[in-house]
């Protein structure tokens, strides 16, 4: 990726966030280039969601500066659909496109859910709900997708299908993606760059230049896996 030739989509400088006297983020710096897939891993409670919320402007209590170029879309770990609105309305709400219904239908078709447009969210499976959530983020034609452990609650098989879907959507629309995950393999399968969050800042960073789809037993990935796991404090 041509990370240095273009203005970054995300630029965060000296980000800080404390809850009480506990500093969760501390002088954190981060840049994400156009179209780059960045995976953010870290132990539970290390501040991954806090960082994402800071970038999305959802947290008024952060210090430092964070700028995001253009539109962004966000998908939460809980699909967070409005239970009393149809699938279509969930994607359409807040869309400012000229024909929001058409745009919403197109986004649902892209995630393979055109047959469910009129369904209530409660009738969807976990994976389907996450796809609606992805469609909702995508319908805004974002330059940046913020994904907060969107597949964490899914079974392993569904998760693999979702990875393929994300890659397909990325190839078509080329948004930058910041994928928060606790799953090292997910990061290795998708990311151009893997960041490890520790002690409130980016404690470690590895680039992966391999083509996707990747074989999980590729020697480079095997080595990086144990490297990342030891960064996370898991000894093998």
């Amino acid at each position: 990726m041509s990370a240095t030739t273009q203005a970054p989509v995300v630029r965060a400088e000296h980000l800080g966030r404390s809850f009480g006297d506990r500093a969760v983020l501390q002088d954190l710096n981060l840049e994400i280039a156009d179209g780059e897939i960045v995976a953010l891993i870290g132990r539970s409670g290390s501040g991954k969601s806090t960082l994402l919320r800071a970038l999305a402007g959802l947290d008024k209590g952060v210090s430092g500066s964070a700028t995001v170029e253009g539109q962004f879309g966000i998908a939460f770990q809980d699909a967070r659909l409005i239970p009393w609105r149809s699938v279509l309305d969930n994607v359409r709400l807040g869309l400012r496109a000229a024909d929001s219904t058409k745009a919403a239908r197109a986004a649902l078709a892209e995630v393979g859910l055109e047959a469910h447009t009129d369904a209530w969210p409660s009738t969807l499976s976990g994976g389907e709900a996450q796809r609606v959530s992805l469609a909702r983020a995508l319908a805004r034609e974002p330059r940046l997708l913020l994904l907060d452990e969107p597949f964490g609650a899914l079974d392993a098989l569904t998760r693999i299908t979702m990875h393929e879907l994300v890659l397909r959507l990325w190839q078509r629309h080329h948004p930058a993606i910041l994928l928060v995950t606790h799953d090292v393999d997910e990061a290795l399968a998708l990311a151009d760059r893997v960041l490890v969050l520790g002690s409130g800042r980016i404690a470690h960073e590895s680039a992966i230049a391999l083509e996707r789809p990747r074989h999980r037993d590729h020697p480079e990935l095997v080595e990086l896996r144990s490297r990342l796991l030891s960064e996370l404090g898991v000894s093998l």
Binding site: S49, Q77, D78, R80, P83, P121, S122, A129, E149, A153
Partner: peptide, 13 residues
């Protein structure tokens, strides 16, 4: 943000 799937159902309740 730790709801279990299917989350929309949990939300509704």
């Amino acid at each position: 943000m730790s709801a279990t799937q299917p989350n929309s159902r949990a939300l509704g309740a």
